[in-house]
Amino acid sequence: MIHARNLPFITTLAIFVIAYALCVLQFPNMLSTRVIGNLLTDNAFLGIAAVGMTFVILSSGIDLSVGSVIAFTSVFVAVMVGSFGVHPLTAFIAALVISTLFGCLMGAMIRYLLIPPFVVTLAGMFLARGAAYLVSTESVPITHEFIDAMMGFYIRFPGGGRLTLLAMIMLAVFIAGIFIASRTRFGANVYAIGGNIQSAELMGVPVGSTTIRIYALSGFLSGLAGIVYTLYTSSGYSLATVGVELDAIAAVVIGGTLLTGGVGLIAGTFVGILLQGLIQTYIVFDGTLSSWWTKIVIGILLFVFIVLQRTIIWYSNRQLAVRQLKEV
């Protein structure tokens, strides 16, 4: 059964399929597993961060610190491994603990000091970026046999494409995200808070701990995205990934999640990521277009989707009124 609330997701999916078909008509090579494998690997870190962002937006919050946390984690890991000779695994765990605690802290401030998420995570954005500079202002290259082993691990598709470890991590995060959102009480509470925080509270939802957990999850996934980004670029750089949170938000919105919270699907975000990746790939294939076209197309898509969502909400309210009249 198709709920009106899933319509944006289905629309996005349809648009993606059509767009992909059009691309393939023009460049048959785009159907190859090689392209698909690259698309997944190139967008792995963004996808991971976008899963966290989806939970935050579902709860009608926002997390602007994502890009900075990614940068901090990547510099932190690079310096730990490159300069201090710490084992990568230890560095990864330390980075994840830090980023998760950072998210916890922001969640607690949002809940208990009643500061809007926009303000708290904006401060978090500056703080994490500053901390990244503090660790190092240089681009720190990173080499370690453990990391080489990780990067050497992939599954080969027929046709020469590779499903890299990074892509696998992203897919695993998406699957876990879908599961958490739709099949756990925590997930249900996230939707409840996003729907109406007062009602949720009066229905007995533990708003405080849920809010903290939402931002902790976003922090954790930003940290994981940072690790994946470090592996992807084999370096850590404090100036990197500026504005990635906005790309993540765009993917979430294009995926059909309402910015007002309470409605949306993690799977939608996945399609949103794929659509962004598709646009980039198309531009690469075309060869004459400037990469700024990615931004322009995403901008247009965002506009289209926001208008679409409004229309759907308007239309379903209308339908509802009619149905209620007929109901009794």
Binding site: R183, T184, M203, V263
Partner: peptide
């Protein structure tokens, strides 16, 4: 007024959903 963005069943069992193997 309960939560309009959830289904009737989700509203009825919010916070105490029946679970199997930890899943709703």
């Amino acid at each position: 007024n309960l939560l309009e963005n959830l289904t009737v069943a989700e509203n009825l069992f919010l916070g105490r959903q029946p679970r199997r193997f930890g899943m709703i």
